Simulated assay, not measured.
Amino acid sequence: MKNILAEIVAHKHTEVAARKKVRSTTELEQAPMFGREGLSLCQFLRMPDKTGIIAEFKRRSPSKGLINGNVTVQQVTTAYTRYGASGLSVLTDEKFFGGTSDDLQQARSYNQVPILRKDFIVDEYQIVEAKAIGADVILLIAECLEAAEVKHLSTFAHNLGLEVLLEVHSESQLEKVSEHVNLVGVNNRDLITFQVDFNRSCELAPKIPAGKLKVAESGINDPAAIVTLQQAGFEGFLIGEHFMRQEDPARAFEQFVSTMRSLQNR
């Protein structure tokens, strides 16, 4: 199977170079949202009245094709927030995931919870962009960044007041966790083959450096899994396709949370 991640990252470098010519960093820094004080995903994940779920708005993926093209950002994200999402994740990659920066800006205008810019960040410019469109958190993917790049980009984000979620899916990648990484996400999906291995999170949880909030990502489609993952030390749960795959993602999220809370109260 071809390496999808390598293809995405190669395209991302070309895409970013083109965007720099259209809108300068100076222009981004003058955007109304650039000066806002960010919300802390770490804090929201630990609020007792929230669910710990980072609920995602995603239209399509390279592995599944179109996931849901019939719902709006407003419909879905406001429901996620209403039913207790600790944060939102919004895809902004257009070519491979059908997302846009406007999706995140819309989510920001309707919700007062932290928003993760879900993209393939390879350049400082994208971090300035994230701040300018209203994101509170950026994603860095250990699979496609060297340790020095993670350190540099996470420090750059920290200096702009953004939190950093570093995504890993092997023990060796934990060596890339640096000072300004706030959250470590274990992706159960192999980014080379896009296959899911749910045990990945539980195996890596005890090895994540102390002081970093643990987030489980991908393949979570059962409320009982949240309870298991919480017992393994996870405080955040990034869930995307499971809700977006449903005809009514808002209703699916409400039912998932209701079942999850019943299990937690047993």
Rank of each mutant, 00 (worst) to 15 (best):
Gly98Cys: 14
Thr77Cys: 14
Ile67Gly: 10
Val76Glu: 05
Ile67Cys: 13
Gly87Glu: 05
Thr77Gly: 01
Asn68Ser: 09
Thr78Tyr: 09
Ser86Gly: 09
Gly87Gln: 06
Lys95Ser: 13
Ser101Val: 08
Asp93Gln: 12
Thr77Gln: 04
Gly69Ser: 03
Gln75Gly: 07
Tyr80Met: 11
Asp93Arg: 07
Gly98Lys: 10
Asn70Pro: 01
Phe96Gly: 09
Phe97Thr: 00
Thr77Trp: 03
Ala85Ser: 10
Asn68Thr: 01
Ser86Ile: 03
Val90Tyr: 01
Gly87Asn: 10
Val90Pro: 01
Ser86Pro: 05
Arg82Gln: 14
Val76Lys: 04
Asp93Lys: 03
Ser86Lys: 02
Thr77Asp: 06
Gly69Lys: 03
Gly84Asn: 02
Asn70Val: 01
Gly98Ser: 15
Gly84Leu: 02
Thr81Leu: 04
Val71Glu: 02
Gly98Gln: 11
Asn70Ser: 13
Thr92Gly: 09
Thr100Lys: 12
Thr81Ile: 00
Gln75His: 12
Ser86Ala: 14
Asn68Trp: 00
Ile67Ala: 13
Gln75Ser: 15
Lys95Asp: 08
Phe96Met: 12
Gly98Met: 12
Gln75Ala: 12
Arg82Leu: 14
Asn68Lys: 02
Gln75Glu: 15
Ala79Cys: 10
Val76Thr: 15
Val76Met: 08
Arg82Phe: 12
Val90Ile: 15
Asn68Met: 09
Gln74Ile: 13
Ala79Tyr: 00
Thr77Lys: 05
Val76Pro: 01
Gln75Tyr: 07
Asn68Tyr: 06
Leu88Ala: 03
Asn70Tyr: 05
Ala79Asp: 09
Leu91Pro: 03
Gly99Leu: 11
Lys95Leu: 11
Asn68Ala: 10
Val76Phe: 06
Ser86Val: 04
Gly84Tyr: 00
Gly99Ala: 13
Arg82Met: 13
Ala79Pro: 00
Tyr80Glu: 06
Val73Trp: 06
Gln74His: 13
Gly69Phe: 00
Thr81Arg: 03
Ala79Met: 05
Thr78Trp: 09
Val73Gln: 07
Thr78Gly: 11
Lys95Trp: 04
Phe96Pro: 08
Thr81Lys: 06
Asn68Asp: 06
Gly69Ile: 02
Tyr83Ile: 04
Gln75Lys: 14
Ser89Ile: 02
Leu88Gly: 00
Val73Ala: 07
Val76Ile: 09
Tyr80His: 04
Val90Trp: 00
Phe97Trp: 07
Gly99Cys: 09
Thr77Arg: 01
Ala85Ile: 05
Ala79Ile: 07
Thr92Glu: 07
Glu94Asn: 13
Thr100Asn: 12
Val73Gly: 07
Ser101Glu: 13
Leu88Thr: 05
Val71Leu: 02
Asn70Thr: 11
Thr72Glu: 13
Leu88Cys: 07
Tyr80Arg: 03
Asn70Glu: 10
Gly69Arg: 05
Val76Arg: 04
Ser89Phe: 00
Thr100Ala: 15
Gly69Asp: 10
Val90Ala: 00
Leu91Phe: 10
Glu94Tyr: 13
Thr77Phe: 04
Ser89Lys: 09
Gly98Arg: 10
Ala85Lys: 04
Thr100His: 15
Gly84Thr: 00
Ala79Leu: 08
Phe97His: 06
Thr72Val: 14
Val73Lys: 08
Gln74Ser: 14
